[in-house]
Design a protein around this nucleic acid. Structure first.
Lengths: 208, 208
DNA sequence: AAATGTGAAGTTGTTCACAGCT
DNA sequence: AGCTGTGAACAACTTCACATTT
């Protein structure tokens, strides 16, 4: 559970952002970038960027900047984002279906390999390529495919129960879209995406 | 742009979470709650909950706890979440369509009243109730309807350009799903939801 | 007795200022 | 000269300990 050097939680998040920026630079054929330029693209201050990078070691060239390729692979390595992680999705409603159809994940190192739903026969308007299995298959599928992460897009009323199944099956990272706080054992990590809260937060900050 | 009393950014976010919990308690007929119980439901420590609440004043009863109803309306008030905010959505692809169909926002005080897309004639598999307008209508619609917030679900390649239009039209809160950092004037607030980054973040924290 | 409210201590994260390479 | 790397100062946030109220 411990990391090589402890990287602050928020820095981890920003490293992901830097990685995206670097990938874009790379595909534009840019080979070298200064902390000023990269920081601007990532929306942070240059000193923060440099501080964040020191958690990974040091590989900038003073007077010049960073090698885009090298920096990208170093970050990806440390984030564990170089190997394609298999992910499952539970809850194939409208949001779940949209996420299944979203082709942006593969480029980013993830693939939703299967979906689960209480009702596998429900009519789904959009054509999706992943198989949809009934909940009973979840446990064996997770074990056989070494799945560690799940995207949870079930209704709030079912979320805690489904979470219990996931944890029981051996999943220990959950990306939760249901608008409630999941109770999980401490070795399980939950990241919440709550759209209503994001909107509410925005509306607070735009009051005059 | 200034608040009555400055509430820390992170506290604002948690107040939204508390509000959701209180609404659930209320609909279960519970009238009074202690900081311990509410904190547990919200996934925070009791002292943090109490500290957060002091930013709103003080209305707990010592020895007893908080009045659920009163606390809920006080928080909602301060968050500006009591009046139904009109929101528009730009980019009616698969994710945009799913969000339009998502009926959870109204209960939370928001309503997506219209959508905009470069291609209004594109076939959309799911029936949605909101009108879809061409981008040319955006500016006048925003002005006439006093729209302040927008959900941005266009492809990354179009995101910055569309953002410029939104800002120009008078929107100053954007919930951005495109996987890049938007450049905006400082009076405009952007909240990012980046699914690939959330997954990447999870995958880091589940490494052993 | 039970629970809130809060100053003070502690922790974490950010920015500065500048030394040190190339 | 230009740009990175980093200890030290600073700022933000969290937790503690306990006084206070019902």
């Amino acid at each position: 559970m411990k990391k090589q050097t402890e990287i602050p939680r928020k820095a981890i998040y920003r490293l992901s952002v830097y990685l995206r920026c670097l990938q874009r630079l790379k595909s534009n054929g840019i080979r070298t970038v200064s902390s000023d330029a990269l920081a601007k693209a990532a929306g942070v201050k240059p000193t923060q960027l440099r501080k964040d990078l020191t958690y990974l070691g040091q590989f900038g060239t003073r007077g010049l900047g960073y090698d885009v390729e090298l920096l990208a692979t170093t970050i990806a390595d440390r984030l564990g984002a170089n190997s394609l992680q298999p992910v499952i999705l539970v809850g194939v409603g409208s949001l779940g279906t949209a996420l299944l159809a979203y082709r942006g994940f593969e480029r980013e190192g993830f693939e939703i390999i299967a979906a689960f739903d209480a009702d596998t026969k429900r009519k789904r308007t959009r054509q999706i390529s992943q198989p949809i299995y009934p909940m009973e298959k979840l446990r064996s599928f997770v074990r056989e495919n070494g799945v560690k992460m799940a995207v949870l897009t079930v209704p709030a009323t079912a979320a805690q129960e489904v979470t219990n199944h996931l944890v029981d099956a051996g999943v220990y990272g959950i990306l939760n879209f249901a608008p409630l706080v999941l109770q999980v054992p401490e070795e399980v990590v939950v990241n919440n995406v709550n759209l209503a809260i994001e909107l509410e937060n925005l509306s607070y900050f735009i009051q005059d």
